[in-house]
Design a protein around this nucleic acid. Sequence first.
RNA 1: GAGGGUAUAGCUCAGUUAGGUAGAGCAACUGACUUUUAAUCAGUAGGUCGCAGGUUCGAUCCCUGCUACCCUCACCA
Length: 515
Amino acid sequence: MEDEIRRKRLEKIETIRETGADPYGRRVDGIEPIADVLARFEKEEEGVKAKVAGRLMSMRPHGNLTFADLRDRTGRIQLGFHKKLLGDAYAYIKKKVIDPGDIVTVEGEVGRTKTGEVTVFPESYVLLAKPLRPLPEKYHGLKDVELRSRMRYVDLFANPESMEVFVKRTKIVEYMRRHLSGRGFLEVETPMMQPIPGGAAARPFTTHHNALDIDLFLRVAPELYLKRLLVGGMERVFEINRNFRNEGVDRSHNPEFTMLEVYEAYSDYRGMMDLTEAILSGCAKEINDDYRTAFQMSSDEEPVEIDFTPPFARKTYDELFEEHVGFPRADEEAVRKKADEQGEDLSLPVPVLADILFEIFVEVHLVQPTFVYDYPVEICPLTKAKQGVPEIAERFELFIARTEIANAFTELNDPVVQRQRFEDQLEGTGVDGEKAGKKIDEDFITALEYGMPPAGGLGIGIDRVVMLLCGVPNIREVILFPLLKPKETAETRIESIEYGEIDLPIDKLNNAEEE
RNA sequence: GAGGGUAUAGCUCAGUUAGGUAGAGCAACUGACUUUUAAUCAGUAGGUCGCAGGUUCGAUCCCUGCUACCCUCACCA
């Protein structure tokens, strides 16, 4: 069937070529965005001419008049192809040489139909691209979640609500850039390929540089490089870019994801809290024109209203612990007992056990934006301790809809303490064999030894912010091309075999060139 | 990594109650139609029922394995 459609379309392409026209056109000048045409018509109404281009989305023929929808990036407008206006050229529309899905440009007068719909009545049209494949169902669109991700190019034009999410994503990132630039922050780019992966406790992807013959890691965080920039005197920096973590994939985790990291010299975690609140509330207001947004946290729950109106709730880690676990975190016996009831490994340090309890009993309650601050120092190796309170780290995490959205610290700038923390961390990871072979980033320590100003550091997970502000429950819906396993078909199998065969000669060729 | 679910026409979905090789709408094709907007009307065509085995006289349906995706959990942001 699909082949039959393809064959028919190829025949149509031949028909078009026989007339001397090119079914795959070229540059078109003087195109007006559809939204502008509609706005202009609202004002003038009389004698408005328009030249628009886009994809034909639906065609409704009535003999010598055919209505169609034309869509471009700015909107949709109705076209009324009329034999009286088009003459012989109308035959190609009547004979369906022009199909829904075709990309065309039309020029003509704008008017209203009987029903009052603003419509361009083309006096001429030019075919610019002829699809060989049929459009998805015009009413339901492309529903299949897998197909939508794999064929995002179809999803985008078939499902306006999908397009809307990605446009919003861009606007969210734009807003953040603008907001930070306005405060004098410089956007920078730091290495994605790092010899020592640092800045987060996550398993990295490994790769290899052939010419240098060194192993490299895709970064799990830009943190240690951004702090080097603080040493260098770039006092306010941020980066919005990809991080890579070689871990599980689920509805809130993609192996590559986008983080905003911000560092501000002479500030601290309190400053970062204010900044986070300003960025996120401003973003919500700008994107949705409302501080509130509806979000469905899991498939078996009703959507809840998340309210980004500042100020966000601010509660200490210990305060929330006692409130929801039922006893003070300092009560080590109670912590061990409760952890045991949960079947946790009691050989773990008490602060770690307490943190597990925190995750189980507290996080489910953190639905509205809530800053959780003043963490136990044991679970925050890169953080500066609170003045006069050595067991508390100056750190906060922002939770929204039970999910960690932001994470911030008062940065440690004492090179001796930093080295000690790194070493402790290496020792402490003996439990987890995966992390064996981790190294201390000596160059980062060296940088600190040149003096890093006291600073606040902040990380915000962009994908998750987009999920919240767009009311989308799955991270794949906010990433244009999320990672999917290649679909194994007979075709792809043959391709991989062919690659295997040509791989060798290419290798030999390269070696020959080197010598 | 564990458990549950889904896979039928290009798309959206029925269905085979209990095994006898499938159906609608849209899209396509032919025709009618000058104001529709999920256009309408008449007709035509389109399927290896995810892949590979097994049971059976016979499997899209039952069984086993595999693949992809979704959900829940674990790890993580």
